[in-house]
Design a protein around this nucleic acid. Sequence first.
RNA 1: GCCGAAGUGGCGGAAUGGCAGACGCGCUGGACUCAAAAUCCAGUGUCCUCACGGACGUGUGGGUUCAAGUCCCACCUUCGGCACCA
Length: 994
Amino acid sequence: MPTYNPKVIEPRWQRYWEEHKTFKTPDDSPKPKLYILDMFPYPSGAGLHVGHPEGYTATDILCRYKRMRGYNVLHPMGWDAFGLPAEQYAIQTGTHPAVTTQQNIETFRRQIKMLGFSYDWDREINTTDPAYFKWTQWIFLELYDTWYDKEQGRGRPIRELPIPPEIQAQGNDAVRAYQDSKRLAYMAEVPVNWCPALGTVLANEEVIDGRSERGNHPVVRMPLKQWMLRITDYAERLLADLETVQWPHAIKEMQRNWIGRSVGAEVDFALAPPAGPATIRVFTTRPDTLFGATYLVLAPEHPLVDAVTTPAHRATVTAYKNQAATKSDFERTELAKTKTGVFTGAYAVNPVNGAKIPIWIADYVLGSYGTGAIMAVPAHDERDFEFARQFRLPIVPVVLPPETWLKHSRVGGIVASLAAGDVPQLSRENVSHPQPHLPTVSQFEYKVMTAAHRVWDECGGDTTRILQRLYGDHVEWFGCFVDEGTAINSGPFDGLSTAEFKTKVTAWLAEHGKGASKVNYKLRDWLFSRQRYWGEPFPILHEVDATGKRTGNIAVLSLDELPLTLPELEDYQPTGKPEPPLSKAKDWLTVVRDGKRYVRETNTMPQWAGSCWYYLRYLDPKNDQAFCDPAKLKKWLPIDLYVGGAEHAVLHLLYSRFWHKVLYDRGHVPCPEPFLRLVNQGMILGEMEYTAFQKISGGAVPPGLVSAEQVDFDGDVAVHKKTAAKLMLIKLDEDQVEKKGDAFVLKEDPSIRVDARAYKMSKSRGNVINPDQVVDQYGADSLRLYEMFMGPLEAVKPWSMRGVEGVFRFLNRVWRLMIDERAENMRLLDAVQDVEPDKETLQLLHHTIKKVTDDIEALAFNTAISAMMELANHLTRQTVRPRSVLKTFVLLLSPFAPHVAEELWQVLNGFREGTLAYEPWPSYDESLLKSDTLQVPVQINGKLRAVVTVPADCDKEKLEKAALADTKIRGLLEGKTIRRIVVVPAKLVNVVTD
RNA sequence: GCCGAAGUGGCGGAAUGGCAGACGCGCUGGACUCAAAAUCCAGUGUCCUCACGGACGUGUGGGUUCAAGUCCCACCUUCGGCACCA
């Protein structure tokens, strides 16, 4: 009984493709190239998630389609296999991470192969393979060997770095130190997340709300010598080149925000006597507000803090500094609802007006951004405003807001009502006789009105002018104004617009040697080392003296010493000190070279390292002479389409682009951007869940159900809004609820609203769909088809097992369209005949070819599948099914459901041996897309009233005539005056009447 | 708070400014069957009507247009990202 049985046909075709190397990609094909890439997975112990095949299926469909269109398609897969979970497992069980990793890769590979993706498996890579990370280490050394020439705007070899004569004069060590200070890879003391309870340093992603993810222990910041990559040097190009790539707008925007470019000025404030000759340099994006700077703030870690602090304030300043240093970033931000800070006792001189202003320190100023110091302009900066109010510092307005802003302010409202005479007890006339305790007028309103009245006549009763006066005199009434306006209280600059002011004052500052324009970025240099075992070792040696102390000199391994592999360790337990586990490998650690003693770098590279360049290695995965043959790079780059999850929107993509640009500058890759076009697949959520809330008896609320609108619910914990009592969650079945209005309610009691939503899949929630089970039950073709049929690729969408069943039924229907299920062996139905299709069928077929072709090109797979369903439904109704039509249909289906398509293709072609993977893609005949007659809707005043059938080539006049001739339309137009008739040929007729 | 995306039947979703709801799920009825499953056929936005037919309908309010789910303005909600970046 040859019924549709994916369990038999899928493994068979997978074996066929593998044995025949059907999808092996030649490097020397004359066909046009396409490089279509999936973000490679981290092979976790949990196995493949249904989210993975979403993007993989999309690209696979496109690849299969493009091959049939005559392209030479490169479509590889590999493993991003360094990372924490394998190491955690090693700590717990003693199993070497390489073993765990290998097992996980086996599982992932089996699962991915079971889905029938057309990868060229000969190009498979693994970031933990020494033959791979040899080149990761090599690239690191290239970064180490590169400095950024700001004049030329590109990275250059360190030997080309010009050495200033005064450095040269100080000897070799000075030269080396100078070079080291310019390298793209450099060492610096930076704070890390040290967890004393776990005795280890944690990655940022292991720290949640200032505590360790495992065990919930406190995490403190501790300075540690780390490798850093100077990505900030590339900030400008990373930003600018976003213009050249076809990425989703949102992702570009996220990268722009992350880079965070802002243009402003650095301004030098001299210290007021007696503090000394030093100046404090601040960064501001609003040099136009310089006249409003009423105090300076230094970050607590600013190097000049100790120097400026006066003896009388030293104790409080030191205490504040210590407090700020031990606080985690989390505490500094989240807990700092109110601003804190202390006065240093010192004063600075405002360079534009000579005003003496106090210098404070406060942790709302970050040491790591700009110069670590700011000029505070409380009238025009929210944070400064808040701080100034708290510490009663002066607020001077220097930007006059536009009229509309003033009128919409609280003061504007009061002045308006005063002008309109809406305050009977307090009209313009009697406001001059103080009556401060009128019941309907607040103290504040009274103050405003009195002040307004005082300037009323002077301003000619003009409310705008009154408000402008009040703003100048009482800015604190108006609050903070941060937008652009007109300069006031700014001496010679008064009356200038914000933009003009900025230009002029920056020029003035430069002229007087007190400042210069400056661009700053939020982007920080990339912390590139981890205190971990399971990562790439750095190919770096630190020279040590006789006592074992580092001399500060660094040597690098040469290419023939690479790869530097990880030492075997007996235990993977953290050292208990902030020292990486590699420091335990004593034999591995020490190296003697040319009579000098060295210790190896014990940090390892972060997981990003391997994924930063993997797309290059696919092009030449087995090369042991170079990371890739330049000819192959030239042939295949850039990547035509890159598909993956939006969780990599910022870091992975930014880091890869950075490495790529460095390699480009050093002449190793031929193009400045790696990923020409990027598409993010949307997340797949679990099945829809319905939740009711029940009070817990004995609590603050009596037992019973609570309607959802009275509940604060985050998906895990529900709290009664009024009583703050915790509520119990009750999972409901779909048929216990119904829709009422725009919400779901309980069928039994429609007054009880129910929460309905789909959640992110997670082990703890128990809503994870395992692809193995889906394939076991319905087959890979159904899984692939369903993942594409769910909705647009980019959209977030909930899983539905019934939906899988729906596409499975479709594949069964396709099968039965041609296969005689009642026969003993595989054979075609008698209905399948070598006849010419009728016109309707032919037209539908060509319509479907066009639709599927266009939709694949647009990655709109869901609608392509709908179109094929419609064709299948049509053919099901036909008693005679032309073989030619079925053959075309199977080719259309093949990128989506390749196994069943191959099987049916065989039968349709008389069991001829071979694959359809390189059959030419069906083409359509334009002339068959149009039918002879058209159904054209006829509207009266925009409302559909009739449909008329006309010849396809019906012109405007004939169409209008046909519409008006329609009996129904005639009846409805009876006695009406026709004012206008809109005729859109082949589309519609709209009759406009009175 | 800031930036971005999205709101259409019971559900997933479809619609170059031109017949809203294609296709699928679910549901209802029918055929087949001793029966069930599977399959096939028909129906299925809401309300009014025996029916013919009609009214309403794409988060809310306004606007542009002969015509708006689609364009413009304001707002609401949900999701994602960032968050003292001067």
